[in-house]
């Protein structure tokens, strides 16, 4: 539990939030990180081999 608390203190939630502002694009850093993670998981889903795929092909 104490370990989790120390993790939480890594990010300060006091004060005003952090935002990315680039031309008309305006979003919070938190949302930006989530979008980056989605792109990463999407790429992983495409390129990480699916377990059992090779054996399935052999049997065909």
């Amino acid at each position: 539990m104490a370990f989790l608390w120390s993790l939480a203190s890594l990010i300060s939630l006091e004060g005003k939030g952090h935002y990315i502002h680039w031309h008309f694009i305006y979003l919070s850093v938190a949302n930006f990180i989530v979008i980056l993670l989605m792109v990463l998981v999407f790429l992983a889903a495409l390129f990480v081999p699916f377990p059992g795929r090779a054996s399935r092909k052999e049997s065909k």
């Binding site: 999407f42 495409l46 699916f50």
Partner: peptide
Amino acid sequence: PAYVASWIYVF
């Protein structure tokens, strides 16, 4: 079908 063996179909 064989092509369904990909992580993208898990979502």
